[in-house]
Design a protein around this nucleic acid. Structure first.
Lengths: 112, 112
DNA sequence: TAGCGTTATGTCATATCAAACATAGCGAAT
DNA sequence: ATTCGCTATGTTTGATATGACATAACGCTA
């Protein structure tokens, strides 16, 4: 049968979401474009929503995930800190491992 | 840090959700109460919503997950088929394994 | 036959969430 | 001083999901 196991993982701190798929996608887009607004546009996300997501991340984290500058050359921008980069790497790795694990699990119960 | 990895898994068939956490909770409630309406009430879910969930499950499944009778002694009722019971058992097992796996994963990256 | 509790649906109001629109401030460059 | 692109917010509208209410049919029981 065409059963498919899907999964979603996220990291909570203090009961609220700290990092999830949407936020990771946004962080990657920021990394590639160098700004929050460009990053948001590149993944068809409204600036407002993107700003809220990023705000949530930086609120939960004790070490800053991005550095934001306003005004100046190019109007400013947003860049990931090394900590931020390590976060998305860890998340991706864990997500990948989880999916592989679930695929194995699914194979184990083909007798549905 | 008080990081916590959370996860949600569900099973899709043909692109739409076949079984998820809410549906499993409902199926369990049905199993315990012997009826859809009682089961829904017992988990504070409206009958309408419960009916839609169950309808979705039985629509996707090729083997029936529940047997529904209307009228008669007690007004009728809903019971799980053996197939239905095996489904929720499999789902629970997979969910549990997934959570254990993620906990292990989390331990492996304490250096956040 | 009248009543009861259940399955099975439809309709309509509402509440929650996301998008659209609007605006302000910043700081370098011209 | 003016312009430009960006960060940073508020407000207002719109969509979408949820809940409340209503109703019909069914078959046993009394």
């Amino acid at each position: 049968m065409s059963f498919k196991v899907k999964s979603k993982i996220w990291i909570e701190v203090g009961g609220q979401e700290f990092l999830g798929e949407g936020k990771v996608r946004l962080l990657k887009a920021i990394e590639q474009t160098g700004s929050l607004s460009k990053g948001a546009r590149s993944i068809n996300m409204s600036y407002k929503k993107a700003w809220h997501l990023l705000d949530g991340v930086n609120r939960c984290a004790k070490k800053p995930v991005t550095t934001n500058s306003v005004g100046g050359k190019g109007g400013g921008g947003t860049a990931l800190t090394p900590y931020g980069k390590s976060l998305i790497a860890a998340f991706d790795q864990m997500n990948l491992n989880c999916r592989e694990f679930l695929d194995q699990q699914m194979k184990a119960i083909r007798n549905l």
